[in-house]
């Protein structure tokens, strides 16, 4: 079933067309990768899908509802969560607290209920803490739970942001360069984490430069170059696609790791 359907998405910044008439679909229960050389418009597509930028033209449908230019917070409520290329963590909060903020998206504790120390506040507090422990384990960083985000290594910060996004209970998780800053071992572990996320019912769309990871985990790959879609399909076909090879300077990068 189609979870996300993008039709003719276009975004211009001044004279530059960052995203040019891009259409694609993401199927439920799959991992899809969005790749392309620097400046291809990948992050802009992410921003357009998640409401952080408004498209000039085009439409985004999520679960068959039109969500074009919906506000980011409302999209989180509808089941779309994201991470950022430059991690946007809450530095002075512990890893656990960071994830608990995400979990609160599904809760209702108001300032009033909290200020009176009422039972709903206490039970939701417990639920958020339990969800945080579970997700920190899922991404494999539970031993950092009580460390402030500012003190975490770069790779752990990426995983923490993924855990925080998952805590909002998304149907679709959009992960912007999850492997950036990870070493080879951590990247292999990330692949397993991505499978686990998919297996628990969350569809994944990633922007990623690590071709080894992309080729391994993706069910489908979408290739952008200078704002335009140049190819789409399963990893095996994308690796052999002449347009993709041309876009990637002769294509060694794509063909190297299989």
């Amino acid at each position: 079933m189609t979870l996300l359907a993008v039709q003719g998405l276009t975004k211009r910044f001044g004279g530059l067309t960052a995203v040019d008439n891009v259409s694609f679909e993401v199927f439920e229960g799959t991992i899809k990768a969005l790749i392309g050389p620097n400046g291809a418009g990948k992050s802009t597509v992410f921003n357009l899908l998640t409401g952080f930028e408004r498209p000039d033209t085009g439409a985004v449908r999520f679960e068959d509802r039109d969500v074009t230019a919906t506000r980011p917070r409302n999209l989180v409520g509808q089941g779309m969560a994201r991470t950022f290329q430059n991690t946007q963590l809450f530095d002075e909060m512990t890893a656990r607290e960071n994830v608990m903020v995400g979990a609160q998206a599904r809760q209702r504790t108001s300032f009033l209920v909290a200020s009176l120390h009422l039972p709903p506040a206490r039970s939701e507090q417990r639920e958020a803490a339990e969800a945080a422990s579970h997700l920190l384990r899922l991404v494999g960083i539970e031993r950092w739970a009580d460390t402030e985000a500012a003190d975490l290594p770069a790779g752990i910060r990426r995983l923490l942001e993924i855990a925080r996004a998952l805590a909002t209970g998304p149907k679709l998780a959009l992960l912007d360069e999850p492997a950036a800053g990870l070493n080879a071992t951590e990247t292999r572990a990330l692949a397993q984490t991505l499978y686990r996320i998919r297996d628990m019912g969350t569809t994944v769309l990633i922007v990623e430069h690590d071709m080894g990871l992309v080729m391994e985990v993706s069910d489908e790959i979408l290739v952008l170059d200078r704002g335009c879609k140049i190819a789409e399909g399963p990893p095996r076909l994308i690796q052999k696609d002449p347009a993709v090879i041309a876009a990637y300077l002769g294509g060694e990068e794509v063909a190297a790791d299989v």
């Binding site: 980011p72 946007q88 909060m93 609160q104 200020s115 996004a165 909002t168």
Partner: peptide, 21 residues
């Protein structure tokens, strides 16, 4: 409780806060 973490998240990163709902 939650409101306190929400306040601190706004302080930490407004982008991150918005993305976390």
């Amino acid at each position: 409780f939650g409101p306190g973490r929400a306040m601190r998240s706004v302080h930490g990163s407004e982008l991150g806060a918005v993305a976390s709902g």
